[in-house]
């Protein structure tokens, strides 16, 4: 049976003195083996909180509602939101879900070889695999494992952290801004690696602010704005013409397109407007938009015409 993650009506709130942060609101999406879903949005829209919620890594002042069903082969499905920390630590993190961190360089210990770091990850998970096998899984040449991090090119360092994420042979990879601060060739190499993992039959959830990176790897694009998933579409359809006004504005802002910013600024997550959160910035808004649009593939009362890709 295909393994999958199905997130349903997930909401995350943080209580602060005198305020509540609406970090994720009523988010639903799914990702299956063999697929890559990119969750795209600007910094502070809630996308990283989503990743942390799925891994059970939120701080104590967070309240999470909704569900995130992890279906691993024929094993009984597990709701990541309801599961106790003990279960997440023993059976989920590293084993079913592998996390590719933000900065490969910061995640490798400079004074130990790649091989030593892979061996340690395997030992921690009690895995019978060898560092060589793990290297092969991540597309690394075992001969390069005896190098220290500073002797690795950026692309190789990326493969080493991928290999560490793969140590417990997880079928779902969560990559949280894996290209932050990398130059374009390295971004492309990292995306190619993630694509390879998906083509190998894993599921990849890519969290990024970089639409161009997402375009290189994703089968589906979900766009988050002010804590909500406002647009969810197959990648080809999305890049041919997003139907949600915010998604369309974000794509148009790319230097290769019109390079114009969306006017205004996103609302504070502590103070979301009533109705559609994009309303103050949206050229298409009407009175109807003072009611929240229903969550769905295009959470909007007046979606744009669908441009059909040719």
């Amino acid at each position: 049976m295909t393994s999958s993650l199905t997130v349903e009506n997930l909401s995350v709130r943080f209580r602060l003195p005198g305020a509540t942060v609406h970090a994720v609101s009523d988010a639903s999406f799914a990702v299956r083996q063999g697929e890559c879903l990119a969750l795209v949005g600007e910094s502070g829209c809630g996308k990283s909180v989503m990743a942390h919620a799925l891994m059970g890594l939120l701080p104590g002042n967070a309240t999470v509602t909704g569900s995130a069903w992890l279906r691993t082969g024929d094993a009984p499905p597990l709701d990541l939101i309801a599961a106790p920390e003990r279960v997440l630590a023993r059976t989920v993190r590293g084993r079913r879900i592998g996390l590719v961190p933000q900065s490969p360089a910061a995640h490798l210990t400079p004074v130990r070889t790649a091989r030593a770091q892979l061996a340690e990850a395997l030992r921690e998970l009690g895995s019978p695999a060898t560092a060589d096998e793990l290297a092969a899984r991540a597309g690394l040449d075992p001969a390069q494992l005896d190098r220290y991090p500073h002797q690795l090119s950026g692309g190789m360092a990326q493969r080493v952290v991928n290999a560490i994420a793969l140590a417990g042979d997880p079928w779902l990879i969560v990559a949280d801004e894996p290209t932050s601060g990398l130059d374009r060739p390295l971004v492309d190499a990292t995306m190619a690696e993630l694509r390879r993992l998906a083509d190998d039959g894993r599921a990849v959830l890519l969290i990024t602010h970089d639409l161009r990176a997402a375009e290189r790897v994703a089968d589906h694009i979900a766009v988050m704005y002010a804590s909500r998933v406002v647009s969810h579409a197959p990648a080809a359809e999305f890049f041919a013409g997003p139907r949600h006004p915010y998604a369309a504005g974000l794509l148009e802002a790319l230097p290769s397109r019109s390079f114009t910013a969306i006017p205004g600024r996103p609302p504070e997550l502590t103070d979301l407007p009533k109705g559609c959160a994009f309303r103050p910035r949206c050229a298409r808004s009407t009175d109807a938009c003072s009611e929240s649009p229903e969550a769905g593939p295009v959470a909007c009362h007046h979606p744009l015409e669908h441009h059909v890709a040719r």
Binding site: G41, E42, S43, S180, G181, H209, D210, L211, G249, L250, L251, A253, L254, P255, F259, T260, A261, I262
Partner: peptide
């Protein structure tokens, strides 16, 4: 603007 989304970059 490397760390920023397209709209903030354009702005």
């Amino acid at each position: 603007t490397t760390m920023l989304d397209a709209s903030t970059q354009a702005h």
